[in-house]
């Protein structure tokens, strides 16, 4: 019986970036292969992180393998920097990466980790976008076996996925995929672009910035390299369509807060049961308010 031993205190100390250097090296090797084979779900031995699988552990392992002194990190969830999960991940980066700055401004960030959104402001070559992925494989809806899916991906055989989309059209006269829209990268691999809305899918196409996607629980990393074709699957007669933010009269709804008519909107229901629309990208909304220095939402109330 080991009744007398104590916990060594240095056991509780964590190194820069939390992960040990061997884990980082493996993630780094995986990222480079993922870039060389655009859209291919590159397997890696995902480590356990101190937050739940599904909370962004895949994205976080990518971020922590990239990050170093001089970096400025932005973390968003649902477009917002102050959403609970974004706060939690940013706090973890601050805790384990001394010397790294964090920001809420898209334009100031060198690394942007996000769940479910790509910022409204166009990204640049000096930025890397890291998306958290819950389900990396778009073929899972038509083929449960990973071994068989890997062959289909290798052969770029997406006939069954297209059939599924076609069946949708027959039944509903519309493709019913709302988010995680299957997108073909460089004419070969079809990816699950993570649960970004369809609104953000065109931002993957020919992006100046590298986009990395990390699935921690499913242990995959994949990439959309810069200046690479990203095409949502569609048919000639039923085109790909982004979310519709027009009102019954056909006018584009503005953000109730900053008035923007060119951003993805969250639909809110207030205490009186009235609907309001507001920018999902909080930094975009704040920046517009700061520029115009007026708050239409407050003027109304």
């Amino acid at each position: 019986m080991n009744v007398s031993y104590e916990l060594p205190l240095d056991d509780a100390a964590y190194s820069f970036g939390f992960l040990d250097e061997y884990a980082k090296r493996e993630v780094r090797r995986t990222i480079l292969k993922a870039i060389c084979i655009p859209g291919y779900q590159t397997p890696y031995a995902s480590r356990e992180m101190p937050m739940g699988r599904g909370f962004g552990t895949g994205g976080l392992q990518v971020t922590l393998s990239l990050i170093g002194e001089g970096d400025t990190v932005k973390v968003i969830d649902q477009g917002a920097d102050d959403s609970v999960n974004a706060v939690n991940l940013r706090h973890f980066v601050e805790l384990t990466c001394p010397g790294v700055d964090t920001t809420e401004r898209t334009t100031e960030a060198s690394l942007i980790q996000s769940r479910h959104r790509i910022p409204e402001v166009a990204l640049s070559e000096s930025q890397v976008m890291i998306l958290q992925v819950p389900y990396p494989d778009p073929l899972v809806v038509v083929e449960p076996s990973e071994a068989r899916r890997k062959v289909m991906h290798g052969e770029a055989d997406y006939s069954r996925l297209l059939t599924k989309l076609y069946e949708d059209i027959v039944q509903f006269d519309e493709i019913t995929i709302s988010h995680r829209y299957p997108t073909r990268i460089n004419g070969h691999y079809v990816i699950d672009p993570s649960p970004i809305p369809r609104y953000d899918v065109p931002r993957l196409d020919n992006s100046p910035a590298l986009i990395l996607l990390g699935a921690g629980r499913e242990k995959k990393i994949y990439a959309v390299p810069p200046y690479t074709r990203a095409e949502p699957l569609a048919f000639d007669d039923v085109p790909f369509r982004v979310e519709d933010f027009r009102d019954a009269q056909g006018a584009r709804r503005p953000c109730a807060r900053c008035g923007a008519t060119d951003s993805f909107l969250d639909e809110l229901i207030d205490d009186d049961g009235n609907k309001q629309w507001q920018c999902s990208d909080s930094d975009y909304c704040h920046s517009r308010l700061a520029e115009h220095d007026t708050i239409p939402g407050e003027a109304m109330s």
Binding site: G54, F55, D77, Q78, G79, S83, V84, N85, R115, H116, R117, E174, T176, I177, S178, H179, R180, P195, I196, P197, R198, Y199, E243, D244, F264, L265, D266, E267, S280
Partner: peptide
Amino acid sequence: MPHYVTFQSDMDR
């Protein structure tokens, strides 16, 4: 966790 964005997208469809 919040899923506002994906739910918004679901509602649109």
